[in-house]
Design a protein around this nucleic acid. Structure first.
Length: 436
DNA sequence: GCGATCAGCT
DNA sequence: CACAGCTGATCGC
């Protein structure tokens, strides 16, 4: 295999330059303070947060890319061995602070790696993104689109974050005597918290490390670590559970709000089930419930009852929902397309739904010639593939067998989808034989 | 002992 | 199911 040129959100050896879309952990797997494989490009906000996440990292390796401007890099062509120019543009991805997409052009053609992104066609920011992309692509064809396919399934349709944020504010203001906890991660959902703070004119509690991040992001007066100053607290999602809520309610009436594209606990119930017969109105439930068969109905029922006693699931998502992904693909009409998320809720290759929008039947021969002739088979395969359950209980022999499958995959189409499922995000995107 | 990786959980 | 990501166990150096 010839050496590659460019890796995005992928940190193994063999590339000349590396790009980071944003600082969520599933995109930094393999990065560490001791990493030193080459120049690492990212946005200015990501660069600002970077030392916090990777203290001791050699910052001379970091290069900041301004958004919406072309930057030229001089690299060695993997095919000819000669110097070649690659141009790259970072574009706001509207995901979490610092998140960008990368648009590349060079001898390999034109390609876009979205990273995680949200494409709200109603928002001002997305309109700017739309103009930027169209201007950048102007007379050029997008040869390959690496797409955030997290919610690439028609099951997933949710409102804009502005609408969802209003739902959150409604929930809080309809519980004037309650304490509120909101489950968030170490980065992301800041806009939601700012919105709450502005509309309800209150500070928001965050844990100390999160306050440091808020300060790095330039938010100095809105957040606090003093519990006495506010009844609204943003807490780490991993500490947000039914048990936590039940514990808190022994001290003071408290409700939880979970902003998420996946209302997991809701999904075990039907919209008209008695589970929702509570006197508290559930703003979001009607459009949310999907019916999923239950293995142990009674057991799950209890969990759901406990859940709905205290927790609101609000469809506030930093990923694009299905109709938005569709809009995005329609706009760009790439020649080829590849999902970057393998562990999505209902993984399906984006070509299954959007192949008709692009010229996927005539994949660019400059790129990924191996993909040619596989796309139709892959699309069919994608819907029939069974979820890989029970990996936690699998034996050593089973996991060895799976590893063997991964090796075989490089030349065998039929295993392609099941492998993609397990792969992490990230790609070595310019690699002559395109096997990653 | 340290970092990388994985299992388990939410 | 699992957005993103923590904790704790284990492995290899």
């Amino acid at each position: 295999m010839e050496k590659g040129m460019i890796s995005v959100d992928r940190w193994s050896e063999g590339s000349q330059v590396y790009f980071l879309t944003h600082l969520h952990a599933d995109h930094t797997n393999g990065l560490s303070p001791t990493w030193k494989r080459g120049p690492l490009f990212c946005s200015s906000v990501t660069a600002k947060l970077f030392p916090f996440k990777f203290p001791g990292f050699n910052l001379s390796l970091l290069s900041v890319l301004d958004v919406t401007h072309w930057h030229s890099l001089s690299l060695i062509s993997p095919s000819s061995g000669l110097e070649t120019t690659v141009q790259v543009m970072a574009i706001d991805a509207h995901h979490c602070p610092g998140a960008v997409m990368y648009l590349f052009r060079g001898e390999f053609g034109c390609m876009l790696y979205t990273g995680d992104f949200r494409w709200e066609t109603t928002s001002k920011r997305a309109q700017i993104g739309r103009t930027t992309l169209l201007n950048a692509l102007k007379n050029e064809k997008l040869d390959i689109l690496y797409l955030d396919n997290t919610y690439c399934n028609p099951l997933y349709s949710f409102p804009s974050r502005e609408v969802a944020a209003k739902q959150v504010v409604n929930i809080i203001s309809s519980h004037p005597e309650h304490d509120i906890i909101i489950g968030i991660d170490s980065l992301g959902k800041e806009d939601l918290l700012l919105y709450i703070s502005r509309l309800l004119n209150m500070k928001i509690w965050v844990w100390p490390e999160r306050l440091q991040i808020m300060h790095l992001l330039g938010f100095h007066d809105i957040f606090t670590t003093k519990t006495s100053l506010t009844r609204v607290r943003a807490v780490p999602r991993y500490s947000f559970s039914v048990d936590t809520l039940e514990g808190l309610n022994t001290l003071h009436p408290t409700i939880g709000i979970m902003p998420s594209g996946i209302p997991w606990a809701v999904k075990t119930a039907k919209p008209n089930d008695n589970l929702f017969g509570s006197s508290i109105s559930r703003h979001n439930r009607s459009s949310w419930s999907t019916n999923v068969a239950m293995k142990k109905p009674n057991e799950n029922l209890k969990i759901v009852e406990r859940y709905h006693q205290y927790i609101y699931s609000v469809p506030y998502s930093d990923h694009s929902c299905f109709p938005e992904i569709q809009e995005f693909v329609k706009l760009l009409q790439p020649t080829n397309m590849k999902g970057i998320v393998s562990k999505s809720p209902s993984y399906v290759d984006p070509l299954y739904y959007f192949g008709y929008l692009c010229a996927a039947n005539q994949p660019s021969k400059r790129l990924c010639h191996k993909l040619e002739g596989e796309e139709v088979g892959e699309r069919v395969e994608a819907v029939h593939v069974k979820r890989n359950r029970g990996s936690r209980n699998s034996t050593d022999a089973e996991s060895k067998r799976r590893r063997a499958t991964q090796v075989d995959f490089l030349g065998v189409r039929v295993n392609r989808v099941s492998l993609l499922r397990r792969l992490r995000c990230g790609a070595k995107i310019v690699d002559i034989d395109c096997t990653e």
